[in-house]
Amino acid sequence: MNNASEYIVNFARGTRSLLVGMRATLRVFFRAKTTERYPENRATLTMFDRFRGELVMLHDEQNYHRCTACGICEMNCPNGTLRVTSEWVVDEAGKKKKSLVEYQYDLGSCLFCQLCVRTCAQQALGFLPTFEHAVFTRGKLIHKLNREGSSLAPKPVAESHTV
């Protein structure tokens, strides 16, 4: 008797669990699909915020950046992706100061580890969520991050920084 009732209970339980599973899959069947149709939706495609596409130096409207050319990023980079070229300039007060000449970034050897961004004392760097980086020669992967004619922001740093 015990066996027989167990048989029937098992049968009912099994059938029920199968039906629950079928209900779950049917719900997914009618759910909106998550697939991105990439080349077609290029105009509207937005990457998520934390996506690290390429390193950029942040510049504000007056073409000021915040890089003091201290070289911490360069020292922290595990791959030698960054090269900071600086020169010594004498300011009005007669003090010698380092000034950024060129900030070179090799996208081809970047790990996207974000160590440069994290360790930058001036928060001068950031990542953009772009991803279409394919080029035909390696040379094109080497970017100059400081914009033409940009300079270090004067002491009270402007609040709003645009990329």
Binding site: V28, F29, R31, K33, T35
Partner: peptide, 13 residues
């Protein structure tokens, strides 16, 4: 197509 829809994909397109 059906398989794709059950897996929340679009399938061949």
């Amino acid at each position: 197509k059906v398989c794709a829809w059950f897996q929340c994909r679009l399938g061949p397109n």
